[in-house]
Computed example of a mutant assay.
Amino acid sequence: MDFTEKTIKSEKIFDGKIIKVKVDMVELPNGSTSTREIVEHPGAICVIPITETKEVIMVRQFRKPIEAVCLEVPAGKLDEGEDPYQCCIRELEEETGYKAKNVQSLGSIYTTPGFSNEILHIYLATELYEGKLQPDEDEFVETETIPLEKLVDMVMNGEIKDAKSIVAILKASQLLK
């Protein structure tokens, strides 16, 4: 069966600094029509920086949509036309104050394909060395170093709820076994 939905009409309803929102009228595979509300996002990266002793440099920051402080791996939005690898290098230093001699891709995921086209590129950073901490003006983060195996336990018992961090932690844990 062909599951493709054909766009009949598309209307942009919001054009923000980070996201755009549109409503598409689509023709379904059975010939019926429906609407799809779509959030367009430029994409992002996350990086799991691991020390020689298998500790991960995590960040804590307040996340307004959930009204809570979140423990997560460092991450950031891609600038227009920016290469994900270069974004990873930039965000790692900005948020943690570290650079890495070795950065490896762990793949990409769609964060919420039910309503957004955001793609998130995941990286593993090792052989860390000091750089310069330089968070964005509107970014207030605190770093915390936690053993990778403890983070896996925190994922499994529900203490870490951030999806990108869960994926990055579990992928890195499997890779480094």
Rank of each mutant, 00 (worst) to 15 (best):
K9H: 14
E52D: 15
G114K: 09
Q174P: 00
K64I: 01
R60M: 01
V47Q: 08
G131L: 06
T53A: 13
E144S: 11
E142A: 12
V73G: 08
F3A: 10
K9S: 13
D15K: 10
F140S: 07
Q174N: 12
S105G: 14
I13N: 04
G131K: 01
E93W: 07
P42T: 09
L120C: 14
K164R: 12
V23D: 01
N102K: 14
Q174S: 06
F14Q: 07
R63A: 10
S108Q: 13
G31V: 10
Y129N: 00
M154F: 15
A163G: 00
G76D: 04
T4S: 15
V103Y: 03
E137R: 08
Y129W: 04
E82S: 02
E94P: 01
G81E: 04
K171E: 08
K77I: 13
F62H: 09
Q104L: 12
V155I: 15
K161G: 10
K99F: 02
F62A: 00
Q134E: 09
L148N: 13
D24Q: 14
K164E: 06
I57C: 05
S34K: 12
S116G: 10
E142D: 02
E82F: 04
K9E: 15
E137Y: 11
A125S: 07
K20D: 09
V103E: 05
I38W: 01
A68V: 01
K150D: 15
L133N: 05
K132A: 11
G16V: 05
G114V: 06
E137P: 15
T7C: 10
C70I: 14
E5P: 05
G81S: 06
S34N: 14
D79S: 07
T126Q: 15
A172C: 06
A125F: 08
K54D: 15
T145G: 00
N117S: 07
E142R: 05
E94H: 07
P29S: 03
P135A: 04
E149L: 14
E139H: 09
Q61W: 00
R90M: 05
L148R: 12
A75E: 13
A100V: 00
P84W: 03
P65C: 06
G158L: 10
K164V: 11
S105T: 15
K161S: 10
E142L: 12
D136H: 11
C70A: 04
A125R: 04
N30P: 04
I160L: 03
G16L: 00
Y85H: 03
E93N: 08
K99D: 00
T7S: 10
N157I: 14
G81D: 12
H121R: 09
E11F: 05
S173V: 02
S105L: 11
C88K: 02
P42F: 05
I119A: 06
V141P: 02
Y123A: 11
I45Y: 07
F62V: 01
M1P: 10
E11G: 01
A100G: 06
T33F: 09
N117Y: 09
D2W: 09
K132W: 03
L151S: 07
K161F: 06
G43S: 09
S34F: 00
I89S: 04
P74E: 07
L78E: 08
E130F: 05
L175T: 01
